[in-house]
């Protein structure tokens, strides 16, 4: 397909409106944030050049790396849980379930729930006395305590599982629909096991859709803010403080635009290689 694409630099004219929106809405603010990272700000309108001071301060700051580590750990755990469950449900939905479009509508519900609603709902659900889950667990002598690190993490992971697994299911289900039925017939005639069908037919065919889902889930899990804030306010202590909350705290409560800028730049430098690898993998899939 891509071999047929015509070389025409005039196509930039078609990209221009989008490019302008992105440049004004994204590139300019990003440059401003990068600019701040080399400066010290006073009273909101006076700036002094400080060079790389913020960077060396951050890179030697154990708390910063712990926040990054927590964010990465959260991302890895949610991705593993959601891709495991999501693939499983998509497979069942495709092979075993009648009226799939009805379930697609149900699956879409949590995706379209405002984040503040999700956070509020899950914090209240875990209330040990009157919460739906917390109250139920109390019956079995299990007391939910959001002031414990373990319960705070379990709650946020369960909440994210509820909130986002559907995205993986919907995308993977779409992937399943695009597999030619002949593949399954051939496998049936050969008497292939369910696992063999999954491993050698479904998984390779779902490669691209899994990459897309992976990219979206990675992006959103790394920038999670409102939901954990609604549940634990980042606590106990800083046990559920992730990078976005750290950024917002630094920029709006401590009014430290320089440090916030430097954190942003370090974060982006870490994410660019991952994005590049995913992008390359996706484009390679397109060519074939």
């Amino acid at each position: 397909m891509s071999a047929r694409l015509r070389q025409w630099n005039g196509a930039w004219a078609l990209v221009l409106p989008a490019a302008v929106v992105m440049a004004v809405g994204g590139f300019a603010p990003l440059m401003t944030a990068i600019n701040y990272s080399f400066q010290q700000s006073f009273s909101g309108d006076r700036y002094f050049w400080t060079g790389l001071d913020w960077y060396s301060a951050i890179l030697h700051d154990g708390a910063f790396w712990q926040t990054m580590g927590r964010t990465a750990l959260f991302s890895i755990l949610t991705l593993v849980l959601q891709f495991g469950l999501g693939l499983f449900i998509a497979r069942k939905l495709f092979h075993k379930q009648g009226r799939p479009e009805l379930f697609i509508a149900i699956l879409g519900l949590p995706l379209l729930a405002p984040w503040i609603v999700v956070g509020f709902l899950w914090r209240h659900m875990m209330d040990a006395e009157v919460g739906l889950l917390g109250g139920l667990l109390s019956v079995f002598q299990v007391t939910v305590d959001l002031n414990s690190v373990l319960w705070a993490w379990v709650t946020i992971l369960a909440m994210d599982l509820w909130h986002w697994t559907s995205l993986v299911v919907v995308l993977c289900y779409a992937g399943y629909l695009s597999i030619p039925p002949a593949y399954f017939h051939a496998a049936k005639i050969d008497g292939a096991s369910g696992w063999a069908v999954f491993r050698h037919i479904e998984l390779p065919k779902l490669r691209n859709v899994l990459l897309v889902a992976g990219l979206l889930r990675l992006a959103d899990s790394l920038m999670i803010y409102i939901e954990p804030f609604m549940i634990t306010r980042g606590g106990p202590h800083v046990a559920t403080t992730f990078i976005s909350q750290e950024l917002i705290k630094t920029a709006t409560q401590e009014f430290n635009l320089g440090e916030a800028g430097a954190i942003s730049v370090v974060y982006l430098l870490l994410i660019v290689p991952i994005a590049w690898l995913l992008f390359k993998a996706m484009r390679a899939g397109h060519g074939g």
């Binding site: 015509r6 809405g25 990003l30 944030a33 701040y36 992006a219 790394l222 920038m223 803010y225 950024l247």
Partner: peptide
């Protein structure tokens, strides 16, 4: 439909913006 100067790079950059936490650009915006 077309290949053009920097088309791959432009596509990648647009993707990168999707990965940027809103918190980063909040104040400048």
């Amino acid at each position: 439909r077309f290949r053009f100067l920097g088309s791959e790079q432009a596509l990648f950059f647009s993707l990168l913006f999707r990965l940027m936490p809103p918190a980063i650009i909040m104040i400048p915006v």
